[in-house]
Every structure is written in C-alpha cells, then in structure tokens.
Amino acid sequence: MAMDHDVSRDNDELLIRLIQEGRHDAFAEIVNRHAKRFYDIAYRLIFDKGDAEDIVQEAFIKLWEKRLNWNPQGEAKFTTWFYRVVLNLCIDHNRKKRPERLAEEMPLPDEQRGHEAAMEEKQKQLLLDRFIQELPERQHLALNLCFYEGISNQEAAEILGVNLKALQSLIMRAKMTLKERVKQYFPEGTR
C-alpha cells in the first residue's frame, strides 16, 4: 500500500494491518481515534488521572512494539481486544496498589445523617467512588463498561470473556449492591 495513502478513512482492522507493516501514521490514527475512550475506562477503574494516562500509554506502546505478534484473524474487533489489554493492565495496577482504608475517610452512617444537608458534592463523589471500587472486580468492570462507557452488553460480554446472561447478571448485581449502599449512606435518597 502506498505511503501517501490517507489512513483517516480506514477502519481499525485495516489500520492494524498497516501498523504491522510498520506504518507509524496508521498507529497515530488509531491513537488519535481511541486514546480518549481507553483513558475513560482506565480512569474509572483506577481513579487517578496520571496512572490512567500511563496505563493507556503503556498499552499503546506495547501495541506498537509488539505489532508483529498480534494475529488479527484470531481476534475480534480491535477495540474489543484492546479493551481487554487495558482492563488487564488496570486490574494488575489495582492489585498492586495498597487498598485504602474506608474508616479513616468516611463518616459512619449514623454520624452522617445529622449533617446530610450540608454534605458537599465532593464528599458524595468520594463515597460513590468508594462504593464502586468496593464492588467485586467483575461487577466493577461490567458496570463501567456498560453503564459509564455505554458499550453494548454483547460487546462487554466479549471483552470480559463471559456469556451474555452472565454479563447481565453482573450488571444487575452491581447496581443492586450500589443502590443498597447509596440508600444506606444517603437515606433521603438522591433528591
């Protein structure tokens, strides 16, 4: 394929083939097209802007360095495959990181009730982050992929390597758990 070929209209799978031929412009196109979406999921999984950027950068650099090792025939869509790469890096990151202690940062529900009217938005967000972080790993991933990233249930199931029913069960359990915790800490609801 000629070097002056405009890659901006190529689909992801074609871009990957060009990347395997060593075309850096194709790599740049893939990065420009998808860096933000992979950053979003990484950020929502690890709650740190710098770390999320580093993880996505690492994943893309691996893609470029090991481009010859990827076999597009055996894989699904590029994004499905790359989500898996990013999620695995995030999971590794979270497992290495020391778990933060809940009790030091959060008021107990009984203490909290009296001050609820004055509770700041930031505190609410911290609590919400904490509730989500405390979900079992697969529920956490399913919720982020489907609810926050708007990925279809079918694609999310492929990314997580589970069947559709299992994925739907993960989403429902995640939301039920969160709803209970939200009610426990925000008894007046979210009105």
Partner: peptide, 14 residues
C-alpha cells in the same frame, strides 16, 4: 434518582 447520582461521579479529562 439513583442513576442521576451515579452520573455525578468524579471524572477528570486527560
């Protein structure tokens, strides 16, 4: 209301 609360979750742009 619950979903609206979920959407208030903290987010930072890259």
């Amino acid at each position: 209301n619950f979903e609206k609360l979920l959407h208030t979750r903290r987010y930072e742009e890259p």
